[in-house]
Each structure stands twice: as structure tokens, then as C-alpha cells.
Design a protein around this nucleic acid. Structure first.
Lengths: 123, 123
DNA sequence: TGGTTATTTAACCAAGAGGTTTATTACAAA
DNA sequence: TTTGTAATAAACCTCTTGGTTAAATAACCA
């Protein structure tokens, strides 16, 4: 999944990683601190952080032996923009419009039977 | 990945599946039609559809030997709501409280104008 | 009945994801 | 220089994902 939005969604698909982002929304912090709420090993957390980093969702600094993590939200904006294209489909008024159009289609189906749903049938 | 939002993000992490959703945004259609833009086999598409179905992103009907697929956007709303919590991190104006409140107001306003929307009025 | 079309299931495979434990690196403090 | 702490890397394991081909299912059509 080389494209940016795929790796963003992929990174967000894990509850541990979403929890890490939620923690980072409160502020920059260390890996150990990020790991503390979870029962998994440090290397596991470290790899979750690597996934988030590769998705561009966090940046890591260097402070003595600590490597503080910091939220980078730009990819989230991109994801939100993608989702926004579908907003009309969950907006109530559009839902009713959709159902109305479906009813029209259903009526048409009763008339036009064989031509329906063929490979290139447009809307 | 038992939780809803994880399976939503996971479903969205694949470009083929996002393209399928984009096609379904134009209207209900058959599996064969959905498969036509891709170079992969029908079973591969069929399994992508199963992923989308299990994530609640599509519903499938039955019309003779066709199984028309239809977009169900509710999980997308949930995902958008999750992302919205992070909006302040990519929105510069959120740096200051006053503008933060203005943003909230603007969001409410946007939400409240649902009933006047027309099919072609974009967001 | 048999044949065609649409779609799913089955069996398989390669690669990836997410976890483990055991080193190893990097730095601070003593 | 040694010791302790923070974090990553390596090696390994298991389960999942995304693809394949071939077979099965389901419905229409002649």
C-alpha cells in the first residue's frame, strides 16, 4: 500500500495506534509513557510507532536517551477530506433523496426488466 | 479487529475497495460492473465486497442472478466523527480559544442546514 | 432437460501484520 | 569504566490479507 491515504487508513485501523494518537493529542511524550497503558511489550509499541511514523502521523525527536513522539495531523486532514466526499450519503436529507431515487429505479425495473443491471447500465 | 471503527478504517485502507465505494456513490450496481475497471479476478472482487459488507459499508440485494451492491455510509460517518476530534491539530485557527469556539459554531451551522440541501449542491 | 451467465466457495500460496523473547544501541550517572 | 535506563533491532511464530485457479451454486433461457 504505497499511497499515502492507504497507509493512513491502515495505521488508523488498529485500536492501539488510535489510542496512542489520542494520548499524543494531549501532548508530546516518551515511548515508555505511551506504552504504559498497554499490556504488550515495548518492542510491540515501538513497532506501532514505526507504523505511525511511516504514515506521517507522528514525528520523533531525540532528547538524551528518550525519543519523544509528537502528533502530526496532516494525513488525518487528507483522510477527513476523503470521507467528506461521502458526507451526503449519511446526511439525513440525502438519505431520503436516495431512497426516493431507489423507488424510482424500482418502478423502472418493473417496466424495463431485461435492460436492468446489465454491465454498462448507468444511473 | 472486532470493533466497528477498526474494521471501517481497515476496509478503507485498500485502494480497490475505495474505488468500489466511489463507483457505488454513483449508484447501485452489479458485481460484474464493479469488477470491470480492475485487472484482478472476480473472486478477488467478491472478497473485497465481503470485506466491505462485513464493515457495514455496503449492502447487497438479490435480483435474479445478480447481486446488486449499494453503498451504506453510516460507518463512514463514524470514521469522520473520529477524525473530527483531531481537526484542531491541522486547523491553524484552533490555536486560539476564540477561534476554536468560532469553529465549533461554524460546524453546528453546517450541520443545521441539512434540510435545504439539493442533489447537486456540493460540500 | 441442458446451457449460459453471475457470483461465491474451496484450496492454495506469498507476503504482511502483530505479537513474543532475546540481543543491541545510545545515552546518563556513578 | 561500569551500571542503569530508554528504545530499537533481530529472529521467530502465528494469523490475516489479497491474490490465484478451479469447482460449485443460483438463476435465467431455449
Amino acid at each position: 500500500m504505497h499511497d499515502q491515504i492507504s497507509s493512513t487508513f491502515s495505521a488508523l485501523a488498529d485500536p492501539t495506534r488510535r489510542a496512542i494518537l489520542a494520548r499524543l493529542a494531549l501532548g508530546e511524550t516518551s515511548v515508555t509513557d505511551l506504552a504504559s497503558p498497554f499490556e504488550m511489550s515495548m518492542p510491540a509499541i515501538s513497532r506501532h510507532l514505526k507504523v505511525l511514523e511511516r504514515a506521517g502521523l507522528i514525528a520523533r525527536g531525540r532528547e538524551a536517551q528518550w525519543r519523544p513522539c509528537k502528533l502530526k495531523a496532516e494525513p488525518l486532514k487528507q483522510a477527513a477530506d476523503w470521507l467528506d466526499e461521502y458526507r451526503r450519503f449519511w446526511d439525513e436529507s440525502f438519505d431520503r433523496l436516495g431512497e426516493y431515487l431507489q423507488e424510482l429505479q424500482a418502478k423502472e425495473k418493473k417496466r424495463g426488466r431485461k435492460e436492468e443491471l446489465k454491465p454498462t447500465s448507468g444511473e
